[in-house]
Write a protein that binds this DNA or RNA. Structure first.
Length: 111
DNA sequence: GGTGTGACAATGG
DNA sequence: GCCATTGCCACAC
């Protein structure tokens, strides 16, 4: 299919797209689900290339393990990510997801 | 084929 | 408890 990217990236996009609305995930969780727990940084990098994809990736649902919107700057504007999260009923305060633990979506556990 | 990187994570001081 | 450093692994040049 069209998703014949480099493999790891494709999985990142896939899993990220599979994040249910109103939920958030972490780079480490996704990386671990892909079989590479130490590739947490790769997840972020993959999302960085998400702009090269012809499809929108809900990367705003992906935050670091602290629930902090680390990559909000990559959305163009810092408010873009917060707006997107707010649109998903996710409240963000001080660049951090409120009740992140409850909204945390683990692909290894829920998928 | 080697080097650099990158939106993290974990540990140490 | 907060700041700095290292590890990590896959992709781009």
């Amino acid at each position: 299919m069209e998703n014949d990217n480099s493999g790891f990236f494709e999985k990142v996009y896939k899993v990220t797209s599979l994040i249910p609305p109103g939920r958030v995930s972490t780079y480490g969780a996704i990386a671990r689900y892909l079989g590479s727990a130490g590739s947490s940084r790769m997840v972020g990098w993959a999302l960085n290339n998400c702009h090269s994809m012809g499809e929108f990736i809900p990367a705003h649902r992906v935050v670091n393990r602290n629930g902090i919107l680390t990559g909000k700057h990559h959305f163009g504007t810092t408010s873009a990510m917060e707006q997107l999260l707010a649109n998903e009923n996710i409240m963000v305060e001080d660049d951090r997801v409120i009740d992140f633990a409850a909204l945390f979506w683990d692909p290894c556990r829920e998928l």
